[in-house]
């Protein structure tokens, strides 16, 4: 098996004549934290939506674990072990913190269509749900509705929910967006710890977080790959500096 868990070949997406993503060849090595960065409008979120099948590519292919998943449906790609997060925090606001995690744990049980059974059949998942909630530091809020949580805690809950599925690969869409400084440290530590036996691909604006966490960085600009490498290489690349700061930069 290839060392790359996720690969794209010539990935392209047109929106009514505007090419948001142009021939992107991305390779994500197994077991690494890979960051996708770039200025606003570079096509990062589009690439993300293509990878998780929320958008369909115009051209190109996507390979996950050696299998072509270009035309697979989003729920199926999730079942194959690639789980995404969303830019705006994605919790189920009127479910409790524990229920949020439990909904994810419930899927592999295969009883999710059983409308005639009591939900007490799900109680056996409570212990695992509580472990996950504690692992992200939300033990004091376990019975609260997720909608009542502060923003940073919602992100933590989202990570706990994602981990409940024990995915091989996590795709995080701007995990630090909208977080305060103290939360950033906590979430970064959390990402680092969950990445120990998984592959993480994240889109992120906060460059210090990227520098701190990522093993490898791909820079996108105007839908194309501008540079790729470790942080030191990428940040020294004149094309990257120009794309970020503009042509006026010396």
């Amino acid at each position: 098996m290839s060392d790359y868990i996720l690969e794209t070949q010539g990935l392209t997406k047109d929106f009514l004549g505007f090419t948001a993503v142009k021939g992107v060849n991305l390779q994500v090595a197994r077991g690494t934290i890979h960051a996708l960065i770039g200025p606003n409008g570079a096509g990062k979120t589009t690439v993300f939506n293509l990878l998780t099948k929320f958008l369909r590519p115009t051209k190109g292919s996507i390979t996950f674990k050696g299998e072509d998943v270009t035309w697979v449906k989003p729920a199926d790609v999730a079942r194959r072990g690639m789980i995404r997060s969303f830019q705006i925090s994605a919790v189920f606001p009127n479910l409790s913190v524990r229920e949020n995690v439990r909904v994810a744990l419930q899927r592999p049980l295969g009883n999710s269509f059983h409308f005639w059974r009591s939900q007490s059949v799900l109680d056996k998942l409570n212990e695992r749900a509580e472990e996950l909630v504690c692992a992200v530091g939300l033990q004091d809020f376990i019975k609260h509705d997720a909608g009542e949580l502060a923003y940073g805690r919602k992100r933590a809950l989202e990570i706990a929910t994602t981990l409940a599925l024990d995915p091989e690969m996590l795709l995080l869409d701007e995990p630090m967006a909208g977080l305060g400084t103290e939360d950033i440290g906590r979430i970064a530590a959390l990402i680092k710890s969950v990445a120990k036996n998984r592959t993480v691909l994240m889109v992120e604006h906060n460059l210090s977080v990227v520098a701190d966490l990522s093993d490898r960085i791909t820079v996108l600009a105007r839908g194309e790959i501008l540079a790729e490498g470790v942080y030191a290489e990428v940040s020294a690349n004149p094309a990257v500096i120009e794309a970020y700061v503009g042509t006026g930069h010396a």
């Binding site: 729920a75 999730a78 994605a90």
Partner: peptide, 8 residues
């Protein structure tokens, strides 16, 4: 969308 991303 979140439910879909969890594989439902």
């Amino acid at each position: 969308p979140r439910a879909i991303s969890l594989g439902y």
